[in-house]
Structures are given as structure tokens and as C-alpha cells.
């Protein structure tokens, strides 16, 4: 997967959707390697909104420490995959 490739796995698409929705960024610009800290709108308020959104989609709580230290979109996707136990609802 190249840097230019839009997010690919199911969880990545889910996270991309959440970021596009809540941060109002272009879905097609988001990839596995998108760096959260340099993404426009990734502030403390929106972080919380993304967390709530992802927890709803995952159907359970996400590990907060890992969420706060996640650097890329792919990191968040991995977190969602673990929380959902591979069973996205």
C-alpha cells in the first residue's frame, strides 16, 4: 500500500469516515499513513468526538491510552479492530 492509497481495510475505512465526518476533511486524502497531529481539526474537542464515534461503531470502549498515543489513521484502525474483536457491528 502506497502513501497515496486511500484507507483500505474495513477498520481503516471506518476511521477515515469518522475523521472525514467529524473533522470535515476530504475522505480521499486520508490514508493508512495520515498523521493525526498534522490533520486539520484534530484538536482536543474533536479527539473526544472521534473517540465517541469510534466506540459507537466498534460497539465497545477503546483503550484510552492507546487512543491518545495513536499517531496515524492506521494506529486508530488497529485500535478499533482490537476493540471490536474483529466483529464490527
Amino acid at each position: 500500500m502506497s502513501v497515496e492509497t486511500p484507507a483500505g481495510t474495513e477498520e481503516e475505512r471506518l476511521v477515515a469516515e469518522a475523521l472525514a465526518q467529524l473533522l470535515d476533511v476530504d475522505l480521499n486524502q486520508l490514508t493508512t499513513f495520515t498523521v493525526l497531529n498534522t490533520t486539520e481539526g484534530w484538536d482536543s474537542v474533536n479527539q473526544m468526538r472521534v473517540l465517541v464515534y469510534l466506540e459507537r461503531e466498534a460497539g465497545g470502549p477503546l483503550d484510552y491510552e492507546r487512543f491518545m498515543t495513536a499517531e496515524t489513521l492506521g494506529d486508530l484502525a488497529g485500535l478499533v479492530a482490537d476493540a471490536a474483536g474483529g466483529e464490527l457491528s
Binding site: 497515496e4 492509497t5 486511500p6 483500505g8 475505512r13 464490527l88
Partner: peptide
């Protein structure tokens, strides 16, 4: 794969249960 994903990302719902 990128084309396929983009199309889906734009036009289809978030991952839903089968």
C-alpha cells in the same frame, strides 16, 4: 484496490454487518 475503495468510500455506507 484504490479505485475500488474510493468508489465505495464515496458512494456506499460505512462498513455494515453482512
Amino acid at each position: 484496490m484504490s479505485v475500488d475503495t474510493t468508489a465505495r468510500a464515496a458512494g456506499s455506507p460505512a462498513p455494515a454487518s453482512p
